[in-house]
Amino acid sequence: MSDDNSNLVAVQADDIELEGELIIPEGAEGLVVFAHGAGSSRHSPRNNFVAESLRERGLGTLLFDLLTEQEDLHRASRFDIDLLTRRLDAATEWLRGRDDAVDLRLGYFGSSTGAAAALRAAARRDDIAAVVSRGGRVDLATDQLPSVTAPTLCIVGGDDQQVLALNRQALGRLDAEKNLHVVPGAGHLFEGTGELEEVATVAGEWFQRHLSGEQYE
């Protein structure tokens, strides 16, 4: 499927510019903003794989760097969840100011520490229609979880036992629609055959369900 509106963008957040890629297929009703994990970037091969799968379903995607190159050199910045949350929230505001995205239903896809930022940002906002966490450090958003109203799907590898336990605990604090999808035998990075494809499929179904116009007719 070809992309009808693809461009590199400078995302305005925290009075700085962050590099990103915004792709909105023609006729899209929803758009998913990606929040990558520590040590990763908008070039994450796993997130780009999922993003391409979402675009094949007719959803827009925004992948952007949560940190500048200089900030990313410091471990403390990579794990500064308050900073990452603020950047994600500001990027969402920037997106809402664009003519091509102002009317789209928004979702967040967060990986590892990015999932904590996604849930924290979703707790602050009333315009996030769905959240998907992949191998998420959802424990880093514990206090904000009761304020999340967006339907939330947590995807965790069956062999990623510590993260799986944290996600099960987190689900107990979520009052919104929620679900846990365990990929059997998968580790934290979903590197086994077919594992990332399963992530993309279940995430796509979740977003398609909650970001499509059918939910609002």
Rank of each mutant, 00 (worst) to 15 (best):
E71Y: 06
D72W: 00
A130E: 10
A130N: 10
L189K: 02
D139A: 01
A76Y: 02
A121C: 04
A90T: 06
G60L: 09
G110L: 04
W94T: 07
A123T: 08
Q169A: 15
L171S: 12
Q161A: 13
A51P: 13
D89W: 04
T85P: 11
F64R: 02
G27Q: 12
L119N: 12
E26M: 10
L196S: 07
V183E: 09
R98F: 00
G172N: 12
A165D: 13
S77R: 14
E197K: 03
L104R: 03
F64Q: 02
A35G: 06
D143H: 06
E17K: 13
L164Y: 04
T85V: 04
D15Y: 05
Q70C: 00
G204T: 12
L164D: 01
S53H: 14
V138M: 05
V148P: 03
G58R: 03
N179I: 00
G213P: 01
A35E: 07
H181Q: 14
A118F: 02
R120T: 14
S6I: 13
V182T: 14
R105I: 00
E197N: 01
L84H: 12
A122K: 09
A10H: 14
E198R: 15
V148W: 12
D103F: 05
E17L: 15
G37T: 12
A117R: 04
D139E: 10
Q144K: 04
L83N: 11
T149D: 14
F49V: 00
S2G: 14
A150N: 07
S112T: 02
V102P: 00
R120N: 15
E71A: 07
S133D: 02
N179F: 04
N7T: 09
A116T: 12
L174H: 07
S44P: 02
I81S: 07
V202A: 05
A123L: 09
Q70V: 13
V132R: 04
V11F: 07
H188D: 04
Q12N: 11
E197R: 02
L54Q: 04
A117Y: 01
A115Y: 08
H36I: 06
P25Q: 12
R168Y: 00
Q144I: 00
L67N: 05
R46M: 03
G204P: 09
F34N: 05
S6D: 15
V182D: 01
V33N: 03
G37I: 03
G30N: 13
S77W: 11
R57A: 13
G39C: 08
C154T: 02
A150G: 05
D99K: 11
T149L: 07
F64G: 03
A170F: 08
A121V: 08
S40D: 14
E29Y: 01
G172H: 11
L31C: 13
L66V: 12
E29F: 03
P184L: 11
L119Y: 09
T193I: 08
Q12Y: 04
S40K: 02
T193W: 08
H36W: 14
G107H: 01
V32R: 10
D4I: 06
